[in-house]
Design a protein around this nucleic acid. Structure first.
Lengths: 185, 185
DNA sequence: GGCATCATACCAACCAGTCGGTATGGCCGC
DNA sequence: GCGGCCATACCGACTGGTTGGTATGATGCC
């Protein structure tokens, strides 16, 4: 499904998808009722595929919650490298493209993004609590992480360069550090 | 060109565009060499259209640079309201969709985003300098503003709700305030 | 046999882009 | 000021190819 990330959902034909996957069109429509159904399934598959990558990461073993949050952001920054289509997010691409034409796909993309953010919520909440930050909602901040990443991806695509996306994550780390410790990283 | 923001570039046919604009296909291809040329022109037009909106805003009259920066962010937050297709950014939509298939459009979109960020650079730089922040590049921070906005738009589209985009801007204001004043807003 | 899993051939709709033709209006010699 | 000339602006039917989707048949498994 890299094709969709590269060229977009509308610009990727079912024939292309079938050729790339080595199946025939008959097989495709046997498994998916329509192209839209494929989009929904792709968004769900995306969440299922990326989840273990973060679930099994090392930073979970750190004793300090803030360190775990910063560890997550370190990993995100490290993942932003090489070819643009390699680190970019399918859910964001889908959401931006079909938000009006296909509510079903948009909703699936939203679940993928929010679902991932939810996995951060506990650590973010504890990090904030550990440092006496009481006026910030952990879920909202975790979602903001995703916003910064998605925005970084957009800028990276426009510029043809991963650097703006990495810079965004660095700002995010500084923000979290300032929030919790009240001092510059 | 609202059609492109609503449905995406690939999903919007030239016939639709012509019908909406009240012109014929002959007239279209008289003015634009191809659909790609229209995309480039649309991105350029987008920058030209949105520029005065910010150039003439009130916050420019404020004496303090940090206040001007926060004033800009206040305006951005206020603009995120109502229908999703009304406040969303055309350049970001284009960039995400055609970054691989059409380098010309992607580059035009990049110029629109970076061009807008450049107009913030002076105020951001002065605000940082006024508060003794020396290790942050003003241009990069101004670009980060755009990343947060673009990311907010993506989440808003996925959720079908402007709130995540507004929340992103609020976090941005807090970040800038923390950076400059070292304290919570 | 009967059912799930495909493969092949096909279709109507739609796409970006073309092309022959027309209307308009400025310009120039007279 | 007028007739001929031509460039620019525009029209809309048309084309070759592609699209998402379907109808029908082959194949293997129980």
């Amino acid at each position: 499904m890299t094709l969709i990330r590269r060229n977009g959902f509308a610009a990727t034909s079912i024939d292309q998808l079938c050729t790339a996957a080595g199946v025939t069109k008959g097989a495709f429509f046997h498994h998916f009722a329509s192209k839209e159904a494929l989009g929904v399934a792709a968004a769900e598959h995306w969440l299922a595929m990326t989840s273990p990558l973060f679930a099994e990461a090392d930073y979970h073993a750190l004793p300090d919650a803030l360190a775990r949050v910063l560890g997550y952001l370190d990993l995100r920054e490290a993942l932003i490298a090489g070819d643009i289509d390699a680190f970019t997010c399918l859910a964001g691409t889908l959401a931006q493209e079909v938000h009006q034409s296909s509510p079903a796909i948009a909703h699936a993309a939203d679940r993928a993004i929010v679902g991932h953010a939810t996995t951060l919520e506990a650590d973010v909440g504890r990090a904030l609590a550990d440092h006496g930050v009481v006026d910030i909602d952990a879920a909202e901040l975790a979602l903001h992480f995703q916003a910064v990443l998605q925005g970084g991806f957009v800028l990276a695509k426009a510029a043809g360069d991963p650097e703006p996306a990495r810079a965004g994550v660095r700002h995010l780390k500084r923000y979290v550090t300032l929030l919790c410790k009240g001092e510059r990283a």
